[in-house]
Design a protein around this nucleic acid. Structure first.
Lengths: 221, 221
DNA sequence: AGGGTGTTGCACCGATCGGTGTAGACGTTA
DNA sequence: TAACGTCTACACCGATCGGTGCAACACCCT
């Protein structure tokens, strides 16, 4: 009973509109991005946009949904490619981290600017759309990463009680310096240091607990 | 020679304006927040705002700066209160983490919504103001936290090569679940689990390296 | 040839917004 | 009393914006 609205208009025009809308929404935000500017960016008439989307809001949600889908696919692909067959856990995690952060500066970069916009507009986005985004985007990649970590832990290389939380920890540790200095993302050296440091902390943090000595610090000395 | 503009107008009016502006900027963002709405929120005439600030942009920067200052003070205070005299490192870190996250739901909450707005509008904020914010806000708290961690490490309880990075790691680990489910911030139980898990990972990740066995995982199994 | 669909450009509407001008009211200080 | 600074209400301007109506044109399928 979920009404599937058949796509209207020429598909390439629709693609062009969504691409232009993504660029401007990402850079300027929902309110600041004007529909005229989007039309120009997309090489399309203002009027045509309203032939494909009823609303500015609907356009935004469509862009948000599509971009999320594509980025999540990329992320899941990176996870699968690096963490399915793990040989050297440390170097594999570092390679994974570098690939992971590489997406931030790839052609998918606008998506992450869009995410910042979403986080800012979070009070003005319908909860249903927000839930959908969370589910198909970060939620999905986190689940995928958690599953890989769980299998690695099963092999005995790590000690993981809560794979989902461990996945969250790893994702955050990889991009630690990102919060303070975004320029580091374009510096090959700084990037590698950041990732290796994050991986190192993660590996120690979730190392297999063999001897009793490992618990010394956590017990409060 | 740095011209110090003497404050003009009644100070209480100015405070009211900035408080109202913070509330609306935080909730609606720079563009969406109208000056009329801010005037109403502040219980002040529209015209009065222009008696205290030349611009909407100047008002925003003033709000941003003041709010950052106040929150940074609070954060530094929490750091000093919990991590100066450390007795039981684990339980002290957990208490610290709970206090730290408690700020997110305190009366200072709007500030963090404002930060999300800043991150979104980052392309439209003058670099000088951005630099100043980074310096007096997250930069300062991170330095303070790094210094405390360095001293703790000096005592021998932790192994920290790069205190600044360790501080970043700790801050991120504390609020790990925040990214996926913001509702957890108001759940006492979930909050404690999140913090204890983050502290645990941090402590293992930066535990003192006594025996050679601790390096097993990091060496790649 | 003809009808249906999609695109385009343009004019246009109502609403909102940032910002200004002005005149009056109030309190303080000299 | 007079002068000054401040606050307020109100009217107003120009610009922008989301969205619509409309007529013309191009294309496709039959």
């Amino acid at each position: 009973m979920t009404e599937r609205k058949k796509p209207v208009g020429q598909p390439d025009k629709r693609r062009a509109i969504m691409a232009g809308a993504l660029a401007l929404f990402a850079r300027d935000g929902y309110t600041r991005a004007g529909l005229d500017a989007i039309a120009v960016e997309a090489g399309v008439s203002n009027r045509t946009i309203y032939n494909h989307f009823t609303d500015k809001a609907e356009l935004f949600q469509a862009v948000m949904q599509e971009s999320t889908q594509r980025v999540a696919d990329t992320m899941v692909d990176i996870i699968d490619r690096h963490l399915t067959k793990v040989i050297d856990l440390q170097s594999d995690l570092i390679d994974f981290g570098l690939a992971w952060l590489g997406v931030l500066t790839s052609d998918l970069a606008p998506h992450f600017a869009l995410i910042r916009q979403i986080n800012a507009e979070i009070e003005h986005i319908p909860p249903a759309a927000l839930k959908l985004w969370q589910e198909t985007g970060p939620g999905r990649t986190r689940r995928e990463l958690a599953e890989r970590l769980r299998r690695i832990a099963e092999r005995g290389d790590l000690t993981i009680d809560d794979p989902a939380r461990a996945a969250g920890h790893l994702m955050l540790l990889l991009s630690a310096d990102n919060l303070t200095d975004r320029a580091d993302l374009h510096n090959e050296d700084a990037l590698r240091k950041m990732v290796t440091a994050g991986v190192s902390t993660f590996l120690y943090g979730y190392a297999e607990r063999t001897a009793a000595g490992g618990r010394a610090a956590a017990d409060g000395s």
